[in-house]
Each structure stands twice: as C-alpha cells, then as structure tokens.
C-alpha cells in the first residue's frame, strides 16, 4: 500500500502543477481574445467614461502581470472575482451550475462502466457468436456518432414520438428539493422524496445516455479486444487445464487483467464528457456549467472564463487520478513497484 500512497502524493503534486499551468495559460488566452469586456458588458450605448470606469474597476488597464498577481491573491482567498454576465461572484455561479454538470457526467460515467464493460466481456466470451456481433455493431454505432446527434435522436424517439421521458430540464417544477449537495438524485433521497428522485432519474436518463453512448461503445470495444487477446495467454490455458469454471476464467483470468487499459480509456472518456456535455446540455436545456461556460466566453467575461476552465481542468485531473489509483489497485506491478524487493 505504501507504493499506492506514494503514487497518490506524486500525482497530486503533478496535478497541482498542471492546474497552475492551466491557470496561467487560460488567464493569458482569455485576455488575448479581441474585444473589450467592459464594452461588451455595458453595451453599445454606454459612454466612454462609463467604459473607462469599468475597465479601471476591473483593473484591465494594469499590466497583465499585475492582473495575474491580483488573480492569485483572489484565488488564495477562495475568490475568483465578479462575473460580468451574471453580476455575481464567479464562485457562486460555479457552485450553482457545477453540480448539474457533474451529476450528468457521473451518471453517464456509471452507465459507461456498467454497460460498456459487461457488454465487452460478453462479446469476448462468446466471440464470433450472435451476442458478439450485436455488441460490436451497437458499439460501432455508439462510437461513430457524436453525443449531440444521439441527444437529438434519443429526444425525438423517446421524448417526442414515444413520450416515455421528459423532454428537458432536471426535474419537474412541482417538486421542491432542498439543496444540500446540489445533486438532485442525492438531495431528493436525503429529503426522503422518492417521487422527486424518480422524476429526476427520468429527466437525467436521456441526456446521460446520449452523453455516454460513445464511451459505452469505446469501453465495450476495447474490453472485448483486450479480453480476446488475454484469452490466448498461457495462464488462461493453464486455468482451463485445471478445470476452473468458464465464468471464473472469464472474470478472473481474462477480464481482470484486461481491465487495466479499459480503465485508462474510461478515465479519458470521462474527462472528455465534461466538454461534450455542452451540446447535450444545450439540447436538453440542462442548467449546467458547460452552458454557463459558453455563455461567458461569448461575453468575454474574463473572471468567469478562467474560473470555469479551472474547475473543469480540476475535474479532469481528479477523474484521471481516480483511474490511476484504480489501476494501481488492480495491477500488482504498480502497487509493488518499489516495496517489492
């Protein structure tokens, strides 16, 4: 376990470095984009004096170094400045919009793991059979269309022609769920409102599925390919020669060792979903951070852009950190790399 702990510390340190790098980059890039944030915020009818006043208030006339220093100063106090778009502290905005996106992405990630891995496992176990071909066809479909296409298709099929699911939003307005974590699925249960939970689940089903489909496809294809390869390894034959049951062999001898590359891909997909979530959020009117992010970029809302990007990077890094830890737990070579000898 010592090696895992060391890995965790090292990765955390690197993650912090990456975050610092991202903050510098996005800070600079946001200021290089043409357009005056103050002018955009105040509109075409504002006077030069008003614009200059706002620029002064935003410290836009100072050098970019001193602006960055102010930003770091704010950050150390847990502040990200004021948003010009919502006229609220950026931290408040993120706190409001982030849980919706995280909830969507986490549900999609769970779908990806719970559907993608077993499908790939089934396909590999029955290689060449009907199940295999169906899984391969479905996963190819999932991979080959982007999530916003799936969002539209799913919405048309299952919300419009066949109104099984609600068409937009997170939850019916009739329900009032007290915000504790911001995750409606969790909060409704904490409050004991089973009906609200069911409603939130129905709302999240389609957007999460649309978001997860390409990941499900990728996870299934990769798991299948790795397992098929692992099935040819000598230790699988040895397990058979000892007469272990086929399911045991599939699970412990073919699936577990081939889980390592699959997990890596799932980690990357999970992070990519944070970005892909934007179009899905737009289509399903999901009040998430991606929608907020695009809105603030269009308005050149500097503080909000930097804040949003930082939060998404942090989520990306955390997702990959979790995957690295899981891999270390599965792969004894990593777990015992140092304290073996």
């Amino acid at each position: 376990m010592r090696a895992v702990f060391r890995l965790l510390v090292a990765r955390l340190f690197v993650s912090l470095l990456v975050l610092a790098g991202v903050s510098v980059l996005i800070f600079a890039i946001a200021r290089v984009i043409p357009g005056d944030p103050a002018r955009i915020a105040l509109g075409p009818n504002a006077t030069h004096e008003q614009v200059a006043a706002l620029r002064g208030q935003l410290r836009l006339d100072e050098s970019i170094w001193s602006q960055y220093a102010w930003f770091v100063n704010d950050l150390s106090r847990g502040e990200l400045g004021q948003s010009l778009y919502t006229n609220r502290p950026v931290v408040k905005d993120i706190a409001q919009f982030l849980p919706a996106t995280l909830e969507l992405v986490i549900v999609a990630g769970i779908l990806m793991i719970c559907a993608g891995l077993p499908l790939g496992m089934l396909a590999a176990k029955y290689r060449g059979g009907v199940i295999d071909n169906v899984v391969r066809l479905l996963s190819l479909l999932g991979v080959s269309a982007p999530s916003f296409v799936w969002a539209v298709i799913l919405m048309l099929l299952f919300a419009f022609y066949l109104p099984l699911f609600p068409i937009a939003g997170r939850i019916d307005t009739a329900f009032e769920v007290p915000g504790v974590t911001g995750f409606l699925l969790v909060d409704s249960l904490l409050d004991g409102q089973v009906a609200a939970f069911a409603d939130a689940l129905r709302h999240i089903a389609l957007p999460a599925l649309a978001l997860a489909l390409s990941g499900i496809g990728q996870a299934a294809r990769l798991t299948r390919a790795n397992m098929v390869e692992t099935y040819d390894r000598p230790y699988v034959e040895m397990a058979r020669s000892y007469g272990f049951p086929e399911w045991r062999i599939a699970r412990s001898y073919a699936f577990k060792p081939s889980l390592i590359p699959s997990l890596t891909i799932i980690g990357l997909d999970f992070a990519a979903m944070l970005g892909n979530a934007f179009l899905v959020e737009a289509i399903f009117a999901w009040p998430g951070l991606s929608r907020y992010g695009v809105a603030v970029i269009l308005r050149k809302d500097l503080n909000a852009i930097v804040g949003t990007v930082l939060i998404i990077s942090a989520a990306f890094l955390i997702a990959n950190l979790i995957v690295d830890l899981l891999i270390a737990l599965i792969n004894p070579r990593i777990r015992h790399s140092r304290d073996a000898s």
Binding site: P234, Y235, M238, S241, P245, K256
Partner: peptide, 25 residues
C-alpha cells in the same frame, strides 16, 4: 471431463512465468 482436470490429471506448461495469473498472488 472438467472434474478430472486438476484433480486426476494435471499439466505443466512450457513457460512458467506467463502461465501464472499476473494479477493474483
């Protein structure tokens, strides 16, 4: 037939290192 394997008949393979499952003790 499976019951015989590992019980009454067992086999030793060519490459001992890769014939053992790498992720179990």
């Amino acid at each position: 037939r499976r019951r015989l394997r590992g019980n009454r008949i067992s086999m030793i393979f060519q490459d001992p290192v890769s014939s053992l499952n790498p992720v179990y003790r």
